[in-house]
Computed example of a mutant assay.
Amino acid sequence: MIDPAKVADPGSELIDRLATRVAEVRKKRGLPRRVLSEMSGVSPRYLAQLEAGEGNISVMLLQRVAEALDVRIEALLAEEVPLDHDVQRMAVLFRQAPLEIQHEVRRLLAPQNPAMMRAGRICLIGLRGAGKSTLGRMAGEALGIPFVELNRDIEEHADMPLAEVMAFYGDTGYRRLEAEALERISAKYDRVILAVAGGIVAEEKTYAHLLERFHTVWIRTSAPEHMQRVRAQGDHRPMQGNPAAMAHLRELLKARTPLYAQAEAQVNTANKTVQSSLNNLLAVIANKRFLDPGT
């Protein structure tokens, strides 16, 4: 029985956990304490004290015990039960595999618990001007999680503004950089709100990856508000020299609606204040439990 006086002491908790972990791994390996002593060079008496939670073992000696047990030293100290050898090896193989193989592994595993692949990650999709960046940034601040714009990540890694990226790489090259950026964000963050460019939904493989790895919310508004907000951002290109711009925008929105509609939720920002739209987005995230593990 653990001494109640130790429970409140983080050091005692660590020693108790270490004692339990060493004993469990040793027994699982079928190693008598005497054999472990011979393999590690640590005395049987010291090992007995260690497994009883009475040994204040040095880091160097603990490393020798870990090596003799064929586990990483952090596995003996971690709060969660460490993964077994086969799973650890699979993790190493996964990290070393090409992206195509990693995607195939995820595709095979995702049906077992699709929500687990997306838990904690939220992606805002929709045409430019709907409010993705504004709402994403505000929601991230409200929830205490990072907000990332995919195009900003592309700019940082390409070390040039997006306009130069497009001019240098072209549309095909940009789409490749976009897919790579999405992979980076997926690997880096367990909890994040991501905003992506409106055209990502037209790239079948990239969009499939996005839907697999993120809970998605379509931030939408009316065509006139899309145009108005883009112009308010200082970009007059949609109107200059193109009197049919609004008709083109409506056609684009109509064509992409079936793709955007694959999102798990929608937030319509048309004729709403920013605060009202933010409240709606936060309500969607809470009600659908997008940040809950495995949901």
Rank of each mutant, 00 (worst) to 15 (best):
E24A: 12
L50I: 07
S58Y: 02
V59C: 04
S37Q: 05
M60Q: 13
R34Q: 10
R72T: 07
L50G: 03
K28I: 06
E54G: 05
R33Y: 01
I101C: 02
L76S: 03
D84K: 06
V65W: 02
S40H: 03
V71A: 05
L69F: 03
E67T: 09
L76K: 01
R26Y: 07
M60V: 15
R33A: 11
L99A: 15
K28S: 10
L31N: 00
R107I: 03
E79F: 07
E24Y: 10
L93R: 09
L31P: 03
E79G: 13
L47P: 00
A91P: 02
L99P: 05
I73A: 08
V65A: 01
R89C: 07
M90D: 11
R33D: 06
I57K: 05
E38P: 04
A68D: 01
S37E: 00
L77H: 05
L93F: 11
A66D: 00
A68E: 02
A68F: 00
E38Y: 07
L69R: 02
Y46M: 13
R26P: 03
V35H: 12
E51W: 08
S37H: 05
V42K: 00
V71R: 01
R29K: 14
A68M: 01
E80I: 07
D86F: 14
H103A: 11
A78W: 08
L61A: 13
L76W: 05
E51H: 07
G30S: 04
V65I: 14
P98K: 04
D70A: 14
L50T: 05
Q102D: 06
V59G: 08
G55T: 02
L83D: 15
F94W: 09
E80C: 07
A78Q: 06
Q88H: 07
R29A: 10
E54M: 08
R34L: 11
D84H: 10
L83I: 11
R106P: 00
E67N: 13
Q88E: 15
R33V: 10
R95C: 09
A75V: 04
I101A: 12
R45G: 08
K27T: 14
E79D: 11
E74V: 09
L50S: 01
A66F: 04
M60E: 15
E74Q: 09
P44S: 06
I73Y: 00
